[in-house]
Amino acid sequence: MFEGRLLQGSLLKKVLEAIKDLVTDTNFDCSETGIALQAMDSSHVALVSLLLKDTGFDHFRCDRNLALGINLQNMSKMLKCAGNDDIITLKAEDEGDTITFMFESPNQDKISDFEMKLMDIDSEHLGIPDTDYQAIVTMPSAEFQRIVRDLSSIGDTAVIGVTKEGISFSTGGDIGKANIVCRQNTNVDKEEDQTTVEIHEPVSLTFALRYLNSFTKATALSPQVTLSLSKELPIVVEYKIEKMGFLRFYLAPKIEE
């Protein structure tokens, strides 16, 4: 059987909120090392990769590898019934066709069990090679969210450029143009307000803002976001999940015809 008890249940709620509009159905791959998920969006342009390590759970048991086929809208409905401070336990039998979500209130005076039907999903996993990216930028996640939202009101695509000076976001549309530059900034008081740039080579790529906007629904998971870019490769937008792992989004760049 599989069982995972997560003291900070709100993390799972946030993960679902971040991906439920991008991906419809997906397998949660459970093994003794944790829970992993990889799924493409319906237009096959973006890829989501989630890792929740066993060590981040208060209790974790997985007797044999399970692929739990889940409709994310339905799981989101179930998790919305958990309080933000609740402890959430996931349970599934090896041969079962349901998953149980147990919610415990912080002072243990309310225990709720929600059972959700699983589905059979044929999933194709893509191999993501280890890449030495040309540029890696870490910046406040709320800042990235704001920039992407602001640019979306002006254009459909953004050019993201990284030089040793910083990262720039540019767009254009019927009403005009916009260009935002965030400079490397390591002198701020709080580490989470820093913008850092690691660069091997300047890089500039074009992306659809609609997807970048969707990725920023993960902002609540982490105060910082890491953007990794290389010429003619998908951008990686990574939100680290404290003590547990990460939620990564990959987006294919637009290419000149």
Binding site: M40, H44, V45, A46, L47, E124, H125, L126, G127, I128, P129, T157, T206, A208, L233, P234, Y250, L251, A252, P253, K254, I255, E256, E257
Partner: peptide
């Protein structure tokens, strides 16, 4: 003109 390729163009199936 830009074209939006699929993600599978960059990452092969396992």
């Amino acid at each position: 003109k830009t074209h939006q390729p699929a993600i599978s163009r960059f990452f092969a199936p396992k």
